[in-house]
Structure formats: C-alpha cells, structure tokens
Amino acid sequence: MITDKLQHLGRNTLNNVAGFGRSGLMLFGALVGKPDFRKGFPLLIKQLYVIGVLSLLIIVVSGLFIGMVLALQGYTVLVKFGAEGMLGPLVALSLLRELGPVVTALLFAGRAGSALTAEIGLMKATEQLSGMEMMAVDPLRRIIAPRFWAGVISMPLLALVFNAVGILGGHLIGVDWLGVDGGSYWSTMQANVDLYQDVLNGVIKSIVFAVIVIWIALHKGYDAIPTSEGISRATTQTVVTASLTVLGFDFILTALMFGG
C-alpha cells in the first residue's frame, strides 16, 4: 500500500520534473535562433491583437471595479483617523505594487492562458503541428514563439492599463462620490508614489508573471494528450497552475522588493 503510494509520488515527481525540462527545452528552442522579422512580425502583431487587445475589456472592467472597491474600503478606514486625504496613495500603491500585476496575471491566465492551451492542444490533436513539421516549418518558431512574445509584451501593458483605470475608479468613488478633496487625491499620490520603488517594481512583477503564465499555458497545450478530455484537463491545469505559481512568486518578489 504505502510503497504503492510512494512509487506513485515518485513517478509523479519525475514526470513533473521531466515535463519542466521538456518545456524549458521547448521554450529555448522557440526563442533562440535568428528571428525572421519578415515572417515573424505579422505573426506577432496578430497575436498581440488576439492575446492583448482582446483581453482589454476584461482588464478595464476589473480594474475599474477594483479601484472603486479599494476607495470605498480605504475611505471607511481612513476617515476614522481623519486621514481621508491619503486615499490617493492608498489606492495607487495597492494597485501599482500588488493588485495590478497580480489580478491582471490571474485574469490573463483565465482569459488568454486557457485559450492558448486549448488552441495549441487542438492543433496538436488535429495533427496541424505534425503537418507543419512535415512541411519543414518548425511549429515552435511559427506557433509558440509569437504567442510567447505577444504575451510577454502585452501583459505588463495590460497591468498598466489596469492600474490607470483603477486609480480613476478610486477617484470616481473617493472624490466624486464620498467627497474627498480632488486636489489632495492627486497631490498626495504624487508625493507618495516613487517611480522606481513602486511603478518599476510593479512592472517587473508583471513581466515575471507574464513569462510564468504564458510559459505554462504554451507548455500545457503543447504537451496535452491529444484527445478531448486531455485538452480539457490541460486547460484547467493551465489556469490552476498558472494562478498558484503567480501567487507564490508574488510572495517571493514582494519579499525581495519591499521586504528588506
């Protein structure tokens, strides 16, 4: 019994490690080698649209609501200390340092990551990837690489949009609704937000998260068992694994950036 379990655990661990090794090689294979701009650029543009632009709506709506909630929650606490003038920095810092990168990554994993996994898994199941290989076109270069770069480029931008919209949402609730002074909302924000410490670290976080989410999504799709339930399992795994990994890395990065 127990040896069975141990055996199972051992095998799972080995499979996972092997999987990561394979996906590392895969990513490596996709990204090294001289890029062909003539063919690569249009592919990248198309993926930027599919992965980035089409995710914009969900990011804007979520950003708006999160900013509004932050302002509402923050106000009720701050007003007890007569510190509602600090609402601006509260909203801005929460978004820039934490919520912007993290929530964007989670939404991105659900919106774009799952779609990528399903798309690539299906291409594998319908032999499109094999077919491409037989036409002497490397699917890693043709399919994986543009999606990877499009994700890595678009997610930090989406996080910035999320932040901006969130800050406006905070303004909407804090200033327009709850009556915090508009001038102090912006001026205290300006005084308390540091370009490097807050904005840049947030961007770095979201670049790291982008790599994590996209890599997991592409790997799960490429490695999916080419059947319908294999693909559905891979899609779920993408969302779960990517979300948990992002949260784990968020803790590590936060500790490194703001902990010391």
């Binding site: 299906l122 291409m123 032999e127």
Partner: peptide, 12 residues
C-alpha cells in the same frame, strides 16, 4: 517530401 495526413491536418 510531403505527407498527406489521414485527417487532412489543414490549418483551421
């Protein structure tokens, strides 16, 4: 070389 797949394998 070139291969005609059983399923066709057209790019959808």
């Amino acid at each position: 070389m070139s291969m005609l797949f059983q399923s066709g394998a057209l790019f959808t």
